[in-house]
Design a binder for these strands. Sequence first.
RNA 1: GUGCCCGUAGCUCAGCGGUAGAGCAUCUGACUUUUAAUCAGGUGGUCGAAGGUUCGAUCCCUUCCGGGCACACCA
Length: 535
Amino acid sequence: MDNALNALREAALEAKAWPFDEAKKLLPRVDKALNAKGYVLFETGYGPSGLPHIGTFGEVARTTMVRRAFRLLTGDSVPTQLFCVSDDMDGMRKIPDNVPNHEMLKEHLQKPLTDVPDPFGTHESFGAHNNARLRAFLDSFGFEYTFKSATELYRSGALDAMLLRALGKFDEIMAVMLPTLGPERQKTYSPFLPISPKTGRVLYVPMKRIDAAAGTVTFDDEDGEEMTLPVTGGRCKMQWKPDFGMRWAGLGVDFEMYGKDHLTNGVIYSKICSILGAEPPVQFNYELFLDDKGEKISKSKGNGISVEQWLTYASPESLALFMYQKPKTAKRLYFDVIPKAVDDYAAFLEKYDTEEGVKRLESPIFHIHGDRVPAERFPVSFALLLNLVSASGTASSETLWGFIRNYAPGVSPEKNKKLDELVGYAVRYYEDFVKPTKRYRRASDKERAALEELAAALDGFVGEKDAEKIQFEIYEIGKRHAFEPLRDWFKAIYEVAFGQEQGPRFGTFAAIYGPRKAADLIRRALAGEFVKVAA
RNA sequence: GUGCCCGUAGCUCAGCGGUAGAGCAUCUGACUUUUAAUCAGGUGGUCGAAGGUUCGAUCCCUUCCGGGCACACCA
């Protein structure tokens, strides 16, 4: 280990950021992990019930942060792996609303997702389709991970040894599970779910006999005929909670995080894992996200905000920052937290340049980017862009750039690509949140006369760069038409031409926007074009 | 009931051992003439309560009060 790496390692030991706290808990496991597998294993699970969502992103992002911290902590001397496991062998319990071909799918209910034809017709199965979506989703963020299909794990025999061991420990597993179940569920519960050889469905049936020596279970198939199947080779899968514990044991998972809603289950997974002779992974539980009303975000309710929505108005980095910050606190995840996340990210980035050693490792920037910290900084805040876009009432990136150049000379879309992206986000924000609130009104006769004169004056200013000259003229026109107080004159301009009570300093706006276009804007407003649009 | 989280300026939150911070809101001033933005500055908090540890606690520990959430099934 060279000196620089060693210095980093020591800094990592001191660093107070939560990923380091978690990564430190892994250190005592290193030798055992290396002997057993040759690497330390991080896992995240992916449920089959839907498309990748913000929780999926959060879990992978945060696990990656712990993994990165661990690598630093060990001077990168310990190999690591991140498995993203898709539970694609789970039976299709219900047909998702957001897919086509419901009729076809109906025939395949309860079958493993990887045995259900793809309703989109693009992949070899529904499970494969979802898996592809998951991977594309994760890849779009550049996550490093190894995808694992539960179906493949089962069918390849990778878990056979552990499944046999679980069969041998059947009674112990039942002893853990039964007290957690309701009375009626207890009667039929089995940690093994056979796949019916006749119908291909995942069966939730009681076991009549088990034969640990032969590695088989005996049960009644759907048609009532008694059936004996090996638990190996993908003929059976395990029921959720034992499945979790068995997978931990079978793969040798060293770290896994989950939401608070799994907290009580984590204990059960661990017990199962221990029964199977393995040490349960280091676990980390995070708080759930809340929506604007303080309610838990769930896919089925569709409240809160999606990854796609976030990325419509802000950068992936800002989302990663949000995930980094306070994972143990229940945070509101809604539109209004976005601008702050964007600017906080920019501020941390700025600060990062002046920090060193431990301080850097405690910066969110390190946990978001590792050693690939972007070079570009932000001379203009997102909050300012949003203000500009609202105040100017113009959702054109070109105009916005006019303001920006005015504000921060030397900045350009070519040189400041990230800023240009921010401009794009601001424009979209305007379109979706500001524009709908606009209320244009018609001009009174007096206002109309003044505005017509203003438009004519603007025509005479074509090519004029000096905002003050234009501003002066605006005052003159207002006075000439006897607006008292003069404030009403400005109000009229904004209400008629911008659909809002306040607006940009009009002289500045006209100079940047172009006097010709500004005049045109006024004329169109006078013609009543905007009033109709708003109504 | 069990567990997790939160309680810091009017609002939203950051800080987590060394004389209280940010954004927004509000107020004042600057930008040659009453709008916005921008800039400069100000107001505003006994850091939920009480004990404890400490030379020293918003920050650690305990208890209490108040609030939110999770814990059937499914994953």
